[in-house]
Design a protein around this nucleic acid. Structure first.
Length: 575
RNA sequence: CGGGGAGUGGCUUAGUGGUAUAGCGCUCGCUUGGGGUGCGAGAGGUCCCGAGUUCGAUUCUCGGCUCCCCGACCA
C-alpha cells in the first residue's frame, strides 16, 4: 500500500478526552475517530487490524468445528420477552420502535436470536451438537463509556453459541472453545490468563474470563501461586480462616464514648485498636429486604457474594434512614449487640473472618458509642457465617490455602456454560434416543474484537507509539523512501513491487515529507519491521533494516534482502 | 443514577463586559533533506445552543445540549 494513496491521518497531540494510553495512541496513529460518546469511526489502519484479529479467530473456531453465521443487530421485542430479558435487562438495552410501532432493540448479544434459529430447525439428537459463531456490531448503552474503545457503547465482537444434547457433550464443547481461545490469544501474542468469573446477567452455571494482563486493566485478578487457581477478584472465594489460637482471655464488654467517630480509620486512631479488631456492620437492601452484614473493620463486602448467598437480584447499600430505622442510631454506630432484639426481622449475616475476632470493637447501636471486648458466640450470634468479603492480601486460596497474589487484567474474552436457561425459555428442544423431549444445553462464548485491539496496544507500546504484536500488525513492513524522486525513489518503488509480490504486507511511505516525519509516523503506527532507502546507503548497494522494538538498525545489501527478511518475518503470517 | 468539571478554527490551548491568543495542522513560495527543518505569505472561528441582565455578552445569570472526571452500574 502506498501511503500517498492511503489514509493514515496521524496527530501530534491526542484529543483531550482520550483517557488511557491505548486510546491516545489509537487517535494519534489514525486508527479511530470519535463520533459520539462510546461510538467510533474506524479508519483504514484500524480496520486492517480488526480484520487480522477476525481472521485469526475465524481460523481457530473453524478448526474447532464451529460454523459462521451472521445474525441481525436489530432484534424484535417478542424474542426478548420470550427469554424474559426484555424485562430483566436494564437501560443498557437500547430499545426503539419501527414505523408500525413494534418494539425492537439493538443487539447487545444474540442468545435469543440464535436459540430461536436453532429451535426452528433442530429437532433430533442426531443433529447435535452444534456450535455457531458470528462477528457483529454490538450495542450496549453503557452508563459511562470510557477508556476509548475498551468500554464503548458500540463495539465489534465475536460471539459463539453451542448447543448440546447432554451435559457431557456440552462440557466437551465448552472445553473445545476454551482451548480454541487459548490458541487464539497465544497467536495474538498476549500475556493472558483464563480466570474463573461471575456469570452476570447472562446467567448460567460457570464461566471463565480471558484476561490480558496489564496494570491498567479494569479488573483485579486473584492468583494462587501454589495451585494456579485464579479468579476475578469480584468472584474469588476465600478459604475460611482458622479459629484464633485460644490463648487470649475473653474480657467483659464495656461501652466507650466515641463522639463523632464513625469511620474505621477514625476509630482505629481514637481507640488505639488495630482494624482487624473491629466488627463493622453494613446494612444492605436486597430485593427490598434489609440485611445486616458484619465484616472485620479492614474488609470490604463483596456484593456479588452477598447477592449470591441471598439469591437476590439486587443488593445495594441501604440509605441512612433505613439505618436509623433499624438500629435507632446514626450510621457509623451500628453493631451486633442487642441487634436481634431491636430488629428481629432483619437477617444478620457475618463474614467468616468475624468469627476469629477476640475482644473486638463494635458499634453500640447508640449514637456516639462503641463497645469494647465484644466476642462472637458469647455476645451475639449471627444467623449465619459465610464467605462475604472481597478477597484481599493475606486471604487463602479456597483449594489449597496458599495466600493469593493480585494482578490486573483487561477482559477480552468470556466463556459461559449456560445450561438450559435460554433453550428452556425459548423451547429449543430435541427428541433424544428414547423419544423424550429435552431442552438443549447451551454455552456461549465471546471475544471483544475491538477490545482485543486496544488491549494489544495497552500491553505493547513505548514512548514513540504502538508496537504491534506480529500477528496483529496492520502491515508487516514499513518501507520508507527518503527522497521523493530520483534513484532512491526508483529503488524503493522496485523493492515495494518485489516485496508485495512475495506476499508481504508492505506500507510504502512514498510521501513528499521530511525523513523525521516519516520516522515518527512509522514508530507511531508501530509496524514491526522497517526498511529505509536513502542516499547515504544506496551507493553502497545497501538499505537499512530496523525492527520496531530494536534499539539499533542493521544494514543489508539489496541482494540479501529477501533471505534476511525471511528470517525475521514468518511469511505465512503475512497477507 | 448521585457528585464534580469543561465546551474558544481540524487538534492542543490563552484570554476578555467592547466579536478573540498562540503552537501544531492546512494552502502557496522559498529553504531543508537520516528523527516532527527554517523563513515568509495566506485560508480557516455563529467563542456549544436558547433565554435573561446590559448601550453592548464569547465573558455575568438561568435553562438546555454535549463531553470529561469520581462513584454506583456492567458478558
Amino acid at each position: 500500500m502506498k501511503l500517498s494513496q492511503y489514509y493514515i491521518p496521524t496527530l501530534k497531540e491526542a484529543p483531550k478526552d482520550a483517557d488511557i494510553i491505548s486510546a491516545k495512541l489509537m487517535f494519534r496513529a489514525g486508527l479511530i475517530r470519535k463520533t459520539a460518546s462510546g461510538v467510533y469511526e474506524w479508519l483504514p489502519l484500524g480496520l486492517r487490524v480488526i480484520k487480522k484479529i477476525e481472521n485469526i479467530i475465524r481460523e481457530e473456531l473453524d478448526k474447532a468445528g464451529c460454523c459462521e453465521v451472521w445474525l441481525p443487530v436489530v432484534q424484535p421485542q417478542e424474542l426478548w420477552e420470550e427469554s424474559g430479558r426484555w424485562a430483566q435487562y436494564g437501560k443498557e438495552l437500547l430499545r426503539f420502535k419501527d414505523r408500525k410501532d413494534s418494539g425492537f432493540c439493538l443487539a447487545p448479544t444474540a442468545e435469543e436470536v440464535i436459540t430461536k434459529m436453532v429451535a426452528k430447525d433442530v429437532s433430533s439428537h442426531k443433529q447435535l451438537p452444534l456450535c455457531f459463531y458470528q462477528f457483529g456490531t454490538k450495542f450496549r448503552d453503557e452508563i459511562r463509556p470510557r477508556f476509548g474503545v475498551m468500554r464503548a457503547r458500540e463495539f465489534y465482537m465475536k460471539d459463539a453459541y453451542s448447543f448440546a444434547a447432554d451435559e457431557q457433550s456440552a462440557n466437551e464443547w465448552y472445553q473445545k472453545v476454551y482451548d480454541a481461545y487459548v490458541k487464539i490469544f497465544e497467536r495474538f501474542g498476549f500475556k493472558f490468563k483464563a480466570v474463573e468469573a461471575d456469570t452476570g446477567s447472562i446467567g448460567g452455571n460457570f464461566s471463565h474470563e480471558f484476561m490480558v494482563l496489564a496494570q491498567t486493566g479494569e479488573n483485579e485478578i486473584s492468583v494462587c501461586p501454589q495451585c494456579g487457581y485464579s479468579a476475578n477478584t469480584e468472584k474469588t472465594e476465600i478459604q475460611p480462616p482458622a479459629a484464633p489460637a485460644a490463648a487470649e482471655t475473653l474480657l467483659e464488654p464495656r461501652e466507650v464514648s466515641t463522639p463523632d467517630k464513625r469511620t474505621i480509620a477514625e476509630l482505629v486512631d481514637f481507640l488505639k485498636q488495630p482494624p482487624e479488631k473491629f466488627i463493622k456492620m453494613l446494612i444492605y437492601n436486597a430485593d427490598g429486604n434489609p440485611v445486616a452484614v458484619l465484616l472485620r473493620g479492614e474488609d470490604e463486602l463483596n456484593e456479588i457474594k452477598l447477592r449470591k448467598y441471598l439469591g437476590a437480584n439486587e443488593a445495594a447499600k441501604a440509605g441512612a434512614d433505613t439505618y436509623t430505622d433499624i438500629t435507632r442510631s446514626a450510621p457509623g454506630f451500628a453493631g451486633p449487640l442487642g441487634f436481634k432484639q431491636k430488629a428481629p426481622a432483619v437477617k444478620l449475616l457475618a463474614d467468616n473472618y468475624v468469627k476469629t475476632i477476640v475482644n473486638g470493637v463494635a458499634g453500640a447501636n447508640n449514637t456516639d458509642t462503641h463497645v469494647l471486648n465484644v466476642n462472637p458466640g458469647r455476645d451475639f450470634e449471627p444467623d449465619a457465617y459465610a464467605d462475604l468479603k472481597l478477597a484481599s492480601a493475606g486471604d487463602g486460596c479456597p483449594r489449597c490455602g496458599a495466600k493469593f497474589d493480585f494482578t490486573r487484567g483487561i477482559e477480552v474474552g468470556h466463556t459461559f456454560k449456560l445450561g438450559t436457561k435460554y433453550s428452556a425459555a425459548m423451547n429449543a428442544v430435541f427428541l433424544d434416543e428414547t423419544q423424550q423431549s429435552k431442552p438443549m444445553i447451551m454455552g456461549c462464548y465471546g471475544i471483544g474484537v475491538t477490545r482485543v485491539l486496544a488491549a494489544a496496544i495497552e500491553q505493547s507500546h513505548d514512548d514513540n507509539g504502538i508496537i504491534w504484536p506480529t500477528a496483529l500488525a496492520p502491515f508487516d513492513i514499513c518501507l520508507i523512501a527518503l527522497d521523493k524522486e530520483g534513484e532512491v525513489k526508483q529503488k524503493a518503488d522496485e523493492i515495494y513491487t518485489r516485496l508485495t509480490a512475495l506476499g508481504y504486507g508492505v506500507l510504502y511511505d512514498d510521501r513528499d515529507e521530511r525523513p523525521g516525519v516519516k520516522f515518527k509516523d512509522a514508530d507511531l503506527i508501530g509496524i514491526p519491521h522497517r526498511l529505509v532507502i536513502g542516499r547515504k546507503l544506496l551507493p553502497e548497494g545497501k538499505l537499512e533494516y530496523k525492527a520496531r522494538v530494536a534499539p539499533k538498525a542493521d544494514f543489508w545489501t539489496f541482494d540479501e534482502l529477501e533471505e534476511k527478511l525471511n528470517k525475521v518475518i514468518n511469511i505465512s503470517n503475512a497477507r
